[in-house]
Design a protein around this nucleic acid. Structure first.
Lengths: 205, 205
DNA sequence: ACGATTATATGATGATTATCATATAAAAGC
DNA sequence: GCTTTTATATGATAATCATCATATAATCGT
């Protein structure tokens, strides 16, 4: 069949979208080509017209997820003054919403223990994503005049990833809530992001 | 064959030991019954004389790993005064050695993104392990007279887990080193564990 | 030494899965 | 409308894997 010019591209995009959710919820090993295709409304055979292999799909899916994730983060802090942007970003990342929706959350939090078991190309895409995130956080920190923003950004990312990963990994709801909240409080404390500090800044202008 | 009384128990222990390493390096999905048995010097068929199912093995393996991990942690801080114990524990956990040897490291760091995909029993064992660790850290904090030790212990655990998981997950060695070091520095900074503070305590007595 | 016991081995089964060769059919261009 | 192109479907293959029924053989108690 000869479809409209955009048809193949649309199908491909749909496969990627479906795969992006499956990758982050079930991990690379559980993502199955047939299941992805079925969820995209197709049958398994056509898959190889779109991707060279399952691994190629994984890599593209990961890059796609990082890009989307980044977009959403930017939106969350858009237009806010530096300290508030930082505060909003932490609230955005270290939140029950993020914890409860791995399917469209940060790939790092969803896949960190899978990454070491993946292909070189996958891990390279993963590294790019981590770099991107540290740089984004670093920019926020710089704007807010923190010292050693690069090192601090790495430490913050590490703490945020730990917060989501750990709180997702426990089954007990209360324990999860406690872990998440403690982690958020801790991160903010380290940055001196108290309510007092935030409102003081707001009034200074 | 009727072996010595302890023989079956020994074999079982060997299976568990082998499985413990495979679980933490490859994750639950990659651990294969045949591979485990082969690594234990046996053939696949005999497995079910020792464990009811693969999942049963996973659960027992996880508990075993948590117990061993805990032992090692206790050893690392044994006999040290409170603040130094805390400092030593952080150095022990957030270390390149730990990062580079997932096979006998903390199960939380190795399996956090796998946990949500596992059976109820597995997750329950996992939760027990997390509880155990927070309590251990809480005890250390209490001994060193920190305020809100319970909440603080959760925040510290979260940051430590993030540090190891994230630094393991990136392929780039330098990025990994930077992430790990930044995280360790950050955690200590939050606890006021500067060299100055540590030696001051040491001299006070 | 011998028979009973039982830990481990052999081999089979069915399920799942990635991959690919080939078939089908849709629509674009003439 | 008919041919050509090509996106998707069907179906096959081979690999991996958990599970289990049955066979084998080791040694303990006698």
């Amino acid at each position: 069949m000869r479809y409209s010019e955009t048809h193949k591209a649309e199908t491909r995009a749909k496969i990627l979208k479906v795969a992006a959710a499956q990758l982050r919820t079930g991990g690379p090993k559980k993502l199955s080509v047939s299941e992805v295709m079925q969820a995209a409304g197709l049958t398994h055979g056509g898959f190889y017209a779109h991707f060279k292999s399952k691994d190629a799909l994984l890599v593209e899916t990961l890059r796609h997820s990082f890009a989307r994730s980044r977009q959403k983060a930017m939106q969350a802090v858009e237009g806010l003054p530096p300290l508030h942007a930082l505060d909003a970003y932490i609230d955005f990342y270290v939140s029950p919403i993020h914890r409860d929706h791995p399917a469209n959350g940060c790939p790092i939090a969803a896949l960190n223990s899978d990454s070491p078991r993946q292909s070189k190309k996958f891990r390279s895409a993963y590294d790019d994503g981590v770099h991107g995130l540290t740089e984004m956080i670093c920019t926020l920190l710089q704007a807010a005049d923190y010292e050693e923003p690069a090192e601090l950004s790495r430490s913050i990312l590490s703490a945020m990833v730990g917060a989501i990963s750990l709180s997702r990994s426990v089954a007990d709801k209360k324990l999860s809530d406690d872990l998440l909240q403690a982690a958020r409080t801790g991160i903010k404390a380290r940055l001196g992001l108290t309510d007092a500090a935030l409102s003081r800044i707001a009034h200074e202008r």
